[in-house]
Write a protein that binds this DNA or RNA. Structure first.
Lengths: 129, 129
DNA sequence: ACATATATAATAACAATTACTATTATTCAT
DNA sequence: ATGAATAATAGTAATTGTTATTATATATGT
Protein backbone atom coordinates (compact mmCIF):
# COMPACT_ATOMS: atom_id res chain seq x y z
CA UNK A 1 0.00 0.00 0.00
CA UNK A 2 2.11 2.86 -1.28
CA UNK A 3 0.13 6.09 -1.24
CA UNK A 4 -3.41 6.79 -0.12
CA UNK A 5 -6.12 7.07 -2.67
CA UNK A 6 -9.21 9.01 -1.84
CA UNK A 7 -12.25 7.06 -0.76
CA UNK A 8 -15.67 8.34 0.19
CA UNK A 9 -15.90 5.77 2.95
CA UNK A 10 -12.68 6.87 4.62
CA UNK A 11 -13.68 10.49 4.25
CA UNK A 12 -17.03 9.76 5.86
CA UNK A 13 -15.35 8.07 8.80
CA UNK A 14 -12.99 10.99 9.32
CA UNK A 15 -15.84 13.42 8.98
CA UNK A 16 -17.98 11.51 11.45
CA UNK A 17 -15.21 11.39 14.04
CA UNK A 18 -14.48 15.08 13.58
CA UNK A 19 -18.04 15.98 14.55
CA UNK A 20 -18.74 13.73 17.49
CA UNK A 21 -17.53 13.75 21.06
CA UNK A 22 -18.77 10.24 21.67
CA UNK A 23 -15.46 8.38 21.42
CA UNK A 24 -17.17 5.58 19.52
CA UNK A 25 -15.99 2.01 19.15
CA UNK A 26 -15.33 0.57 15.68
CA UNK A 27 -18.76 -1.02 15.72
CA UNK A 28 -20.48 2.26 16.60
CA UNK A 29 -18.64 3.98 13.77
CA UNK A 30 -19.85 1.22 11.48
CA UNK A 31 -23.48 1.67 12.55
CA UNK A 32 -23.33 5.42 12.05
CA UNK A 33 -21.61 5.40 8.68
CA UNK A 34 -24.19 2.93 7.43
CA UNK A 35 -26.77 5.69 7.65
CA UNK A 36 -25.07 7.26 4.61
CA UNK A 37 -23.35 4.21 3.12
CA UNK A 38 -25.73 1.31 3.80
CA UNK A 39 -23.40 -1.34 2.48
CA UNK A 40 -20.07 -0.27 3.81
CA UNK A 41 -18.26 -3.27 5.17
CA UNK A 42 -17.17 -3.63 8.77
CA UNK A 43 -13.73 -4.59 7.49
CA UNK A 44 -13.49 -1.30 5.68
CA UNK A 45 -14.28 0.53 8.90
CA UNK A 46 -11.61 -1.32 10.83
CA UNK A 47 -9.02 -0.88 8.09
CA UNK A 48 -9.61 2.84 7.78
CA UNK A 49 -9.75 3.47 11.51
CA UNK A 50 -6.39 1.79 11.93
CA UNK A 51 -4.97 3.53 8.87
CA UNK A 52 -6.10 6.95 10.07
CA UNK A 53 -4.75 6.26 13.55
CA UNK A 54 -1.35 5.23 12.14
CA UNK A 55 -1.22 8.43 10.14
CA UNK A 56 -2.11 10.49 13.17
CA UNK A 57 -5.38 11.81 11.76
CA UNK A 58 -7.35 10.28 14.58
CA UNK A 59 -6.47 8.70 17.93
CA UNK A 60 -7.07 5.13 18.93
CA UNK A 61 -7.86 4.91 22.63
CA UNK A 62 -7.12 1.74 24.45
CA UNK A 63 -9.80 2.30 27.03
CA UNK A 64 -9.65 1.05 30.59
CA UNK A 65 -12.86 -0.93 30.16
CA UNK A 66 -11.01 -3.03 27.58
CA UNK A 67 -12.67 -1.55 24.51
CA UNK A 68 -10.92 0.35 21.74
CA UNK A 69 -12.44 3.72 21.01
CA UNK A 70 -11.63 6.40 18.49
CA UNK A 71 -11.23 10.13 18.83
CA UNK A 72 -11.16 12.69 16.03
CA UNK A 73 -9.58 15.26 18.32
CA UNK A 74 -5.82 14.93 17.90
CA UNK A 75 -4.88 17.92 20.02
CA UNK A 76 -3.23 16.76 23.25
CA UNK A 77 -5.85 16.21 25.92
CA UNK A 78 -6.80 13.64 28.51
CA UNK A 79 -9.71 11.27 28.88
CA UNK A 80 -12.20 10.44 31.56
CA UNK A 81 -14.15 7.20 31.83
CA UNK A 82 -17.44 7.37 33.73
CA UNK A 83 -17.86 4.43 36.08
CA UNK A 84 -21.59 4.91 35.94
CA UNK A 85 -22.56 5.26 32.28
CA UNK A 86 -19.34 4.00 30.73
CA UNK A 87 -18.96 6.98 28.44
CA UNK A 88 -15.63 8.65 27.74
CA UNK A 89 -15.25 12.40 28.06
CA UNK A 90 -12.45 14.74 27.05
CA UNK A 91 -10.64 16.67 29.73
CA UNK A 92 -8.87 19.87 28.82
CA UNK A 93 -6.21 20.44 31.42
CA UNK A 94 -2.73 21.76 31.89
CA UNK A 95 0.12 19.44 31.06
CA UNK A 96 1.12 16.84 33.62
CA UNK A 97 4.25 15.77 31.78
CA UNK A 98 6.24 16.36 34.94
CA UNK A 99 5.03 12.95 36.15
CA UNK A 100 7.46 11.42 33.67
CA UNK A 101 10.29 12.86 35.72
CA UNK A 102 8.76 11.62 38.94
CA UNK A 103 8.47 8.15 37.47
CA UNK A 104 12.01 8.35 36.11
CA UNK A 105 13.40 8.95 39.57
CA UNK A 106 12.62 5.40 40.62
CA UNK A 107 13.30 3.69 37.32
CA UNK A 108 16.48 2.91 35.40
CA UNK A 109 15.02 2.89 31.90
CA UNK A 110 14.11 5.78 29.62
CA UNK A 111 10.62 7.18 30.09
CA UNK A 112 9.33 8.66 26.86
CA UNK A 113 5.76 9.37 27.84
CA UNK A 114 2.64 8.23 29.58
CA UNK A 115 -1.01 7.46 28.99
CA UNK A 116 -3.49 8.43 31.68
CA UNK A 117 -7.18 7.74 32.09
CA UNK A 118 -9.16 9.44 34.80
CA UNK A 119 -12.30 7.83 36.12
CA UNK A 120 -15.21 8.68 38.39
CA UNK A 121 -18.71 10.09 37.81
CA UNK A 122 -19.37 12.28 34.80
CA UNK A 123 -21.34 15.56 34.98
CA UNK A 124 -24.44 14.03 33.40
CA UNK A 125 -24.53 11.15 35.86
CA UNK A 126 -23.98 13.49 38.81
CA UNK A 127 -27.10 15.42 37.89
CA UNK A 128 -29.20 12.25 37.60
CA UNK A 129 -28.66 11.04 41.14
CA UNK B 1 -21.83 -18.43 43.30
CA UNK B 2 -22.42 -17.74 46.95
CA UNK B 3 -19.20 -18.24 48.87
CA UNK B 4 -15.76 -19.29 47.70
CA UNK B 5 -14.69 -22.85 48.13
CA UNK B 6 -11.02 -23.67 48.21
CA UNK B 7 -9.45 -25.03 45.06
CA UNK B 8 -5.87 -26.08 44.44
CA UNK B 9 -6.00 -24.57 40.98
CA UNK B 10 -6.96 -21.14 42.23
CA UNK B 11 -4.37 -21.34 44.96
CA UNK B 12 -1.71 -22.26 42.41
CA UNK B 13 -2.63 -19.27 40.26
CA UNK B 14 -2.44 -16.89 43.20
CA UNK B 15 0.84 -18.43 44.29
CA UNK B 16 2.32 -18.16 40.82
CA UNK B 17 1.36 -14.50 40.49
CA UNK B 18 2.74 -13.74 43.94
CA UNK B 19 6.18 -14.92 42.89
CA UNK B 20 6.62 -13.50 39.43
CA UNK B 21 7.27 -9.99 38.21
CA UNK B 22 6.41 -10.89 34.65
CA UNK B 23 2.88 -9.46 34.49
CA UNK B 24 1.73 -12.50 32.50
CA UNK B 25 -1.28 -12.76 30.24
CA UNK B 26 -4.00 -15.32 30.96
CA UNK B 27 -2.44 -17.65 28.44
CA UNK B 28 1.00 -17.37 30.03
CA UNK B 29 -0.50 -18.13 33.42
CA UNK B 30 -2.15 -21.17 31.85
CA UNK B 31 1.14 -22.43 30.41
CA UNK B 32 2.95 -22.05 33.71
CA UNK B 33 0.28 -23.62 35.90
CA UNK B 34 0.22 -26.61 33.58
CA UNK B 35 3.71 -27.48 34.78
CA UNK B 36 2.12 -28.51 38.07
CA UNK B 37 -1.47 -29.19 36.94
CA UNK B 38 -1.11 -30.64 33.45
CA UNK B 39 -4.80 -30.77 32.75
CA UNK B 40 -6.02 -27.54 34.21
CA UNK B 41 -8.44 -25.96 31.80
CA UNK B 42 -7.92 -22.58 30.20
CA UNK B 43 -11.45 -21.66 31.26
CA UNK B 44 -10.52 -22.32 34.87
CA UNK B 45 -7.60 -19.97 34.55
CA UNK B 46 -9.74 -17.20 33.10
CA UNK B 47 -12.48 -17.69 35.65
CA UNK B 48 -10.11 -17.58 38.59
CA UNK B 49 -8.09 -14.67 37.31
CA UNK B 50 -11.25 -12.62 37.00
CA UNK B 51 -12.55 -13.82 40.33
CA UNK B 52 -9.32 -12.94 42.11
CA UNK B 53 -9.22 -9.57 40.40
CA UNK B 54 -12.81 -8.80 41.46
CA UNK B 55 -11.94 -9.68 45.03
CA UNK B 56 -8.86 -7.49 44.93
CA UNK B 57 -6.38 -10.32 45.50
CA UNK B 58 -4.65 -9.58 42.22
CA UNK B 59 -4.78 -6.75 39.70
CA UNK B 60 -5.95 -6.96 36.14
CA UNK B 61 -3.99 -4.61 33.94
CA UNK B 62 -5.60 -3.34 30.83
CA UNK B 63 -2.33 -2.82 29.06
CA UNK B 64 -1.72 -0.18 26.42
CA UNK B 65 -0.75 -2.79 23.84
CA UNK B 66 -4.29 -4.11 24.08
CA UNK B 67 -3.48 -7.22 26.10
CA UNK B 68 -4.77 -8.00 29.57
CA UNK B 69 -2.07 -8.84 32.05
CA UNK B 70 -2.18 -9.82 35.70
CA UNK B 71 -0.20 -8.63 38.67
CA UNK B 72 0.03 -10.30 42.06
CA UNK B 73 1.32 -7.11 43.63
CA UNK B 74 -1.70 -5.25 44.95
CA UNK B 75 0.23 -2.52 46.71
CA UNK B 76 -0.24 0.79 44.88
CA UNK B 77 2.40 1.19 42.20
CA UNK B 78 2.67 2.19 38.58
CA UNK B 79 3.51 0.33 35.40
CA UNK B 80 5.87 0.80 32.55
CA UNK B 81 5.49 -0.73 29.10
CA UNK B 82 8.67 -1.16 27.08
CA UNK B 83 8.21 -0.12 23.47
CA UNK B 84 11.08 -2.36 22.50
CA UNK B 85 10.52 -5.73 24.15
CA UNK B 86 6.89 -5.26 25.12
CA UNK B 87 7.43 -6.28 28.72
CA UNK B 88 5.75 -4.56 31.62
CA UNK B 89 7.78 -3.39 34.61
CA UNK B 90 6.74 -2.10 38.00
CA UNK B 91 7.66 1.44 38.94
CA UNK B 92 7.90 2.34 42.58
CA UNK B 93 7.43 6.06 42.82
CA UNK B 94 5.96 8.75 44.97
CA UNK B 95 2.25 9.36 44.68
CA UNK B 96 1.03 11.48 41.79
CA UNK B 97 -2.54 11.68 43.05
CA UNK B 98 -2.35 15.45 42.79
CA UNK B 99 -3.03 15.05 39.06
CA UNK B 100 -6.61 14.23 40.00
CA UNK B 101 -6.98 17.77 41.27
CA UNK B 102 -5.38 19.18 38.15
CA UNK B 103 -7.81 17.21 36.02
CA UNK B 104 -10.72 18.23 38.22
CA UNK B 105 -10.02 21.89 37.60
CA UNK B 106 -11.15 21.57 34.00
CA UNK B 107 -13.94 19.07 34.52
CA UNK B 108 -17.38 19.26 36.08
CA UNK B 109 -17.70 15.62 37.15
CA UNK B 110 -16.22 13.83 40.12
CA UNK B 111 -12.75 12.44 39.61
CA UNK B 112 -12.20 9.41 41.80
CA UNK B 113 -8.87 8.24 40.49
CA UNK B 114 -6.66 7.57 37.51
CA UNK B 115 -4.78 4.83 35.73
CA UNK B 116 -1.40 5.68 34.25
CA UNK B 117 0.96 3.71 32.07
CA UNK B 118 4.42 4.96 31.36
CA UNK B 119 6.24 3.86 28.26
CA UNK B 120 9.72 4.06 26.76
CA UNK B 121 12.77 1.80 26.82
CA UNK B 122 13.33 -0.54 29.75
CA UNK B 123 16.71 -0.96 31.51
CA UNK B 124 17.39 -4.33 29.85
CA UNK B 125 16.76 -2.99 26.37
CA UNK B 126 18.89 0.09 27.04
CA UNK B 127 21.87 -2.12 27.82
CA UNK B 128 21.41 -4.18 24.64
CA UNK B 129 21.75 -1.31 22.20
C1' DA C 1 -9.74 6.95 -22.47
C1' DC C 2 -6.49 3.70 -20.75
C1' DA C 3 -3.26 1.42 -17.60
C1' DT C 4 -1.98 0.78 -13.01
C1' DA C 5 -2.65 0.58 -8.29
C1' DT C 6 -5.45 1.11 -4.25
C1' DA C 7 -9.97 0.47 -1.92
C1' DT C 8 -14.04 -1.87 -1.48
C1' DA C 9 -17.82 -5.44 -0.08
C1' DA C 10 -18.52 -9.78 1.23
C1' DT C 11 -16.97 -13.60 3.30
C1' DA C 12 -13.93 -16.62 5.62
C1' DA C 13 -10.46 -17.22 9.10
C1' DC C 14 -8.66 -16.27 13.42
C1' DA C 15 -7.63 -15.43 18.39
C1' DA C 16 -9.21 -14.28 22.87
C1' DT C 17 -12.71 -14.98 25.98
C1' DT C 18 -16.95 -16.78 27.82
C1' DA C 19 -20.80 -20.20 28.32
C1' DC C 20 -22.30 -24.89 28.97
C1' DT C 21 -22.50 -29.42 31.13
C1' DA C 22 -21.47 -33.62 33.19
C1' DT C 23 -18.22 -34.91 36.73
C1' DT C 24 -15.29 -34.03 40.76
C1' DA C 25 -13.99 -31.75 45.01
C1' DT C 26 -14.99 -29.07 49.13
C1' DT C 27 -17.68 -27.90 52.98
C1' DC C 28 -20.60 -28.52 56.74
C1' DA C 29 -23.87 -30.85 59.65
C1' DT C 30 -24.67 -35.00 61.57
C1' DA D 1 -16.29 -40.76 59.23
C1' DT D 2 -20.69 -40.28 56.11
C1' DG D 3 -23.58 -38.07 53.29
C1' DA D 4 -26.15 -34.09 51.38
C1' DA D 5 -25.60 -29.74 49.33
C1' DT D 6 -23.14 -26.77 46.50
C1' DA D 7 -19.15 -24.75 44.28
C1' DA D 8 -15.29 -25.76 41.06
C1' DT D 9 -13.38 -28.31 37.48
C1' DA D 10 -12.16 -30.25 32.69
C1' DG D 11 -13.46 -30.46 28.30
C1' DT D 12 -15.90 -28.62 24.75
C1' DA D 13 -18.78 -25.55 22.19
C1' DA D 14 -20.16 -20.95 21.31
C1' DT D 15 -19.42 -16.03 21.03
C1' DT D 16 -17.04 -11.87 20.19
C1' DG D 17 -13.90 -8.64 18.19
C1' DT D 18 -10.65 -8.28 14.66
C1' DT D 19 -7.90 -9.40 10.60
C1' DA D 20 -7.07 -11.81 6.06
C1' DT D 21 -8.63 -13.06 1.45
C1' DT D 22 -10.42 -12.23 -3.09
C1' DA D 23 -12.92 -10.79 -6.92
C1' DT D 24 -14.78 -6.38 -8.30
C1' DA D 25 -15.02 -1.36 -8.28
C1' DT D 26 -12.91 3.15 -7.93
C1' DA D 27 -9.36 6.59 -8.15
C1' DT D 28 -5.18 8.56 -10.21
C1' DG D 29 -1.67 9.89 -13.67
C1' DT D 30 -0.61 9.98 -18.54
Amino acid sequence: MAVNKYSRQREAIKEYLAHTKEHPTADTVYMNIRATYPNISLGTVYRNLNLLAEQGEIIKLNCQDGSDRFDGNVKPHYHFLCNNCGRVHDIEMESIDHINKIAGAGFDGKIEGHVTFFYGVCPDCMRNE
